[in-house]
Nucleic acid binder design. Structure first.
Length: 862
RNA sequence: GCGGGCGUGGCGUAAUGGUAGCCGCAACGGACUUAAAAUCCGUUGGGAGUAAUCCCGUGCCGGUUCGAGUCCGGCCGCCCGCACCA
């Protein structure tokens, strides 16, 4: 009886070897079976996996193994999002080549992932920095150019003058480069763009079809795309002397109903008009410089006070020739949105109000609540517009209309006069994909002084990164390389230069899921393979990718469809965003973070284990090196085993929520693995009688079959924590039954059945322990090749129900009746209960609510 | 400012509008043991009572309903996303 302890250190590697040697998880197209493609967001090869990876890949693995057991042909691949800045930083800081740094990290992390026992088809593995991957990215970019999906244009960027590189907005901190600390400048650079805005409407409307995406993510994308319908129109411009200028001023507005309340116009400091005037006007030039110094970070713009600088020109009101609106350059107008120019209506817009107040401009109300004709504007703008209860005032032909009517009338007149038209605008910007970096996919074009921009012929792809690069000076090593960029023009064969920018790494991750369908194909995506495997049935990853990665991927799929590389427009049928792994933090009174393992309790207070210094709780935070609350998966897998780590990650907390790592919880999971091992050993020790029915055996069989039904339902809906609670219940029931084993043949049979169900149900979560237990139960085949247990509907069905008996909504007693018992019989039984008759004594029953098989509520007076 | 989410025992959590707290952690009591570990059994929302039982209880206030943790309205608190978007 006394079984040896389950030894994960021996067992886990053995089964991992078995799965590898049996090629258990290698997927092949098989039209006779339904396919299921489960994918977790692939990792960046930072060097070591962290607990977040463990959680993410465990969830995907449970789905993969569960679906496989249910008969699906499962594709579950893994790869590496391997380009990016950390590799270059390692090169700069430690003199390691980005390539060797990356591939060494991949090797280390692959080993760690394999120790988790994941059901992954490793034969499909690739890294985005493999030339065999990025050559196809380059080929598709050339196809995108041909399909008019690409544009090269000058754009404003954050430029770090010390590192000589472009910085992303999040790398600009308080106007300074995050690495160099140098004041960041705004600079105009020619950049490559993918025309994602051309798909703005479609990316927005198709969100409605993504029914298996979290509502939250769809909303975030919707807001990000930011569609608005407004009016674009042009003012005539005059100089101070009243002389008409050649060029008018085109503005965009969603409040054209308020045109008669306009008291000024404002343009961005980067607007062509501001630039032109700055050439002859020192004040404007100084203002432009000042605004530029602030950088493009949204945050800095927001904090700044609303300020402007008069340009000395005036806009003529389109319906009121006598009204001339002064035009300003203003710091709150963004060049990137609409036309980079607005008209200001201070009475009905907060920003315009602030601006008009500062510069003493007129504030004329033009929208007022219905019935209040002479409304006086107080000390704030009146922002109502969605209600029918307000009307236009002080607005000539618009007076008395509601907002919608006025908008329509203004738009009609503007259109008739050729001055403007209704226009849809997006907050979404085109996707700038140029990066002045080495460790990325080279952009496959050549700049020729005669032919202009010439794509590299596909026969010459890939354009490979040179290995012999130096990181000894700032800027892009590709630019400094002595020979790499010098090539002959593919068109005229004269000396020309390669593009030295590389792609944004979000391009790499925008199509990797499709490459997994045919990772060795000589074209980007094999059509038969992608037709079979795509779309991804279940995609899992962190919510931090809700916008950029997921939106880019949706756009990229459409671009691939347009260029004939793909058939599906939506890559991810179902999306799940899992929560983070968090852990307690500790710090000293001085505020220094302390390892949780160094914190001990002494007399009810936390102190440092060795120094005895008092500590305080720093809160439960996302694991991070700086807060010293990281738990290393290697350590956990070595001491408890992969199965325990996986089990913990799925237990207790719903998968979309943050899960707190605790030592006690991990030990609890570990104890449960040992408990299962004991239970299976105990079951093996009793005779395996065939299942038959007596009262005890039947009771256990009901629990077993109901557990299978419940766990199946939970796993189908990714409710891992509930599935685990049900499995605990089954294990507890088996433990109970074992105490009376050998007294009943039927119970012995039921125990063997329950044991095999227990093993199969836990197998997706704890695959090694499941295989070892399965073998112990005397099974010939492996769990991985065994079908999910079938339930006996008769055992799942309930034939008796216990229903609550309420009086006036308060539970007073309960009643066990046959399922489906008719109302009158239930009512009679309830009214016959001694406790109920006592409570009802002397009271008149008003009515009795009977919900069959659920509840009975007796409503009486008093 | 705009949009979204969440508030349930000591803790993580569970509950198609139908008996609130399944399951786990922690704690306490007991069995086994020379002892410990491990394991097994039991108790554990608050209050009253010897007990049977009864009362209260899902952030706060109100509403809908025979019945509300769940639906609706208004607050309070926490979290997340976007943000001078015209």
């Amino acid at each position: 009886m006394a079984a040896e302890r389950y030894n994960h250190r021996e067992v886990e590697p053995q089964w991992q070897k078995f799965w590898t040697e049996s090629r258990s998880f290698e997927a092949n197209e098989d039209v006779s079976r339904p396919k299921y493609y489960v994918l977790e967001m692939f990792p960046y090869p930072s060097g070591r996996i962290h607990m977040g990876h463990v959680r993410n890949y465990t969830m995907g693995d449970v789905i993969a193994r569960f679906r496989r057991a249910c008969g699906y042909n499962v594709l579950h691949p893994m790869g590496w999002d391997a380009f990016g800045m950390p590799a270059e930083n390692a090169a700069i800081e430690r003199g390691i080549h980005p390539k060797s740094w990356t591939y060494e990290n991949i090797a280390a992390m692959r080993k760690q992932l394999k120790s988790m026992g994941l059901a992954i088809d490793w034969s499909r593995e690739f890294a985005t920095c493999d030339p065999s991957y990025y050559r196809h990215e380059q080929a598709m970019f050339i196809d995108f150019m041909d399909a008019d999906l690409v544009e090269r244009r000058v754009s404003l960027v954050n430029w770090d003058p010390v590192d000589q590189t472009v910085l992303a907005n999040e790398q600009v901190i308080d106007g300074k480069g995050w690495r160099s600390g140098a004041a960041v400048e705004k600079r105009e650079l020619a950049q490559w763009f993918l025309k994602i805005t051309a798909y703005g409407d479609e990316l927005l409307s198709a969100l409605d079809g993504l029914e298996k995406w979290p509502e939250k993510v769809r909303l975030m994308q919707k807001n990000w795309i930011g569609r608005s319908e407004g009016l674009r129109f042009t003012f005539d411009l005059e100089d101070a002397a009243g002389k008409k200028r050649d060029q008018g001023l085109t503005v965009y507005t969603t409040r054209h109903d308020t045109i008669f309340g306009a008291s000024f116009c404002a343009v961005s400091a980067d607007h062509p008009l501001a630039k032109e005037i700055a050439e002859s006007n020192e004040d404007v030039a100084a203002f432009r410089k000042e605004v530029a110094a602030l950088g493009t970070s949204e945050e800095t713009i927001e904090r700044a006070e609303k300020r402007g600088c008069a340009l000395g020109v005036f806009a003529c009101h389109p319906f009121n020739p006598n009204v001339k609106l002064p035009v300003y350059a203003a710091n709150f107008v963004l060049m990137g949105y609409g036309e980079g120019a607005i008209f200001g209506c201070p009475a009905h817009d907060q920003r315009d109000w602030d601006f008009a107040t500062k510069y003493n401009l007129p504030i004329l109300p033009v929208v007022a609540p219905r019935g209040i004709a002479s409304r006086v504007i107080g000390d704030a703008p009146y922002l109502e517009k969605d209600s029918d209860d307000c009307v236009l005032v002080n607005s000539q032909f618009l007076d008395g209309m509601n907002v919608e009517q006025a908008k329509a009338e203004v738009a009609r007149r503007m259109k008739d006069s050729g001055r403007g038209e209704i226009r849809v605008n997006f907050r979404l910007r085109d996707w700038g994909v140029s990066r002045q970096r080495y460790w990325g996919c080279p952009i496959p074009v050549v700049h020729c002084k005669d032919c202009g921009i010439v794509p590299v012929p596909k026969s010459q792809l890939p354009v490979e990164l040179p290995d012999d690069v130096k990181f000894d000076k700032p800027g892009n090593p590709l630019l400094h390389h002595p020979t790499w960029k010098h090539v002959n023009c593919p068109k005229c064969n004269e000396p020309a230069e390669r593009e030295t920018d590389t792609f944004d790494t979000f391009i790499d991750s925008s199509w990797y899921y499709a490459r997994f369908a045919s990772p060795h194909a000589s074209i980007p995506v094999d059509q038969d393979a992608s037709k079979y495997w795509l779309p991804v049935d279940q995609y899992i990853g962190g919510v931090e990718h809700a916008i950029l990665h997921l939106l880019y991927s949706r756009f990229y799929a459409r671009a691939m469809v347009k260029t004939g590389h793909l058939q599906v427009k939506e890559p991810f049928e179902s999306l799940f965003t899992q929560g983070m792994v968090i852990h307690e933090t500790f710090r000293t009174k001085a505020g220094e973070w302390v390892l949780p393992s160094d914190a001990v309790t002494k007399d009810g207070a936390w102190v440092h284990g060795t120094s005895g210094e008092p500590l305080e709780l720093g809160g439960v935070e996302k694991m991070s090196k700086s807060k010293k609350n990281v738990v290393d998966p290697d350590t956990i897998i070595a001491s408890y085993g992969a199965d325990t780590a996986r089990w913990f990650m799925l237990s207790d907390t719903p998968p979309e929520r943050d899960i707190q790592w605790t030592e006690a919880g991990a030990e609890g999971s570990w104890r449960f693995t040992q408990k299962i091992w004991r239970l299976i050993n105990d079951i093996v020790a009793i005779p395996a009688h065939p299942v038959s029915m007596d009262e005890q055996g039947l009771a256990l069989r009901r629990i077993s079959h109901r557990t299978v039904a419940a766990v199946t339902d939970d796993l189908n809906n990714l409710r891992f924590n509930r599935a685990i609670a049900r499995i605990y219940e089954l294990a507890n029931a088996i433990g109970q039954s074992l105490q009376t084993a050998n007294k009943s043949f039927a119970l012995n049979g039921a125990l063997h059945e329950a044991g095999s169900f227990l093993v199969l149900l836990m197998a997706p979560m704890m695959p090694h322990l499941a295989e070892e237990s399965w073998k112990l139960l005397g099974q010939q085949s492996a769990v991985v090749d065994t079908r999910w247990p079938l339930v006996d509907a008769g055992l799942v069905a309930v034939d008796e129900v216990t229903i609550a008996v309420q009086i006036n909504g308060k539970r007073r007693d309960e009643l066990t009746v046959a399922k489906g018992q008719d109302r009158s019989a239930v009512e009679a039984a309830a009214l016959g209960l001694a406790s109920i008759t006592r409570l009802l004594e002397g009271k008149a029953i008003k009515k009795v609510i009977v919900v069959p098989d659920r509840i009975i509520n007796i409503v009486c007076e008093g």
